[in-house]
Design a protein around this nucleic acid. Sequence first.
DNA 1: ACAACCAATAACCAATTGGCTATGGTTTCT
DNA 2: AGAAACCATAGCCAATTGGTTATTGGTTGT
Lengths: 106, 106
Amino acid sequence: MPVLADHVFKALSDPTRRAIFEGLARHGEQTVHVLTRRAGISQPAVSKHLVILKRARLVGRRHVGRETHYSARPQALAPLVDWMAVYGVFWRDRFDQLENLLQRMD
Amino acid sequence: MPVLADHVFKALSDPTRRAIFEGLARHGEQTVHVLTRRAGISQPAVSKHLVILKRARLVGRRHVGRETHYSARPQALAPLVDWMAVYGVFWRDRFDQLENLLQRMD
DNA sequence: ACAACCAATAACCAATTGGCTATGGTTTCT
DNA sequence: AGAAACCATAGCCAATTGGTTATTGGTTGT
């Protein structure tokens, strides 16, 4: 039923969009101008990707004068986690590895 | 660099393919014939989806006479887990919920 | 006031995608 | 042997997608 996961899967199916999301997650809030420079495609193309990421709630925005600052919203990945928890029986197998990974992230 | 995640994201971006994978994960191994009946689309369309799922290693197959039995390979979701572990800072927040969910799955 | 900049939208285009029918290669059943 | 069943592939088509340039609405700087 959750049309939520649908939007998230669609949004992440494109490598350019993943790169945008990854950049925002790594380096924090960025303007469309900066995102465009780093993406290597036109500004309208970036804006269109941002619309799709926004529909999936993967990014949020904040208007500051004439510029728009976008930021990553990792909570939006929750539907994917839930989906995988249901259909990915493997989960338990990777549990320890994840725990280690989390500790390394601290 | 992992082109692995690319294939997996692409494969799961289509709801019909997700439904096929979910069916295999829930009900175990199934023939193309059965999958076709449950999918509500033509047999060649199902076969094409299976090719894409297979490229992502999300399904495996086993030939039995004239029929082919497909099965889900949830381990193929690992690249997604890894990707989310890196970019999803939220992870720690949902850790407890996941633990509960896993216990309910037992 | 006006020029320049930022970002979103519109209009268009080529490539990809998801569906179909037709066909062919095996295997099974009479 | 011949018919029927199962599945993969080929070829076709409409819809979607990811990109482009052109334009517009706001905001900032001179």
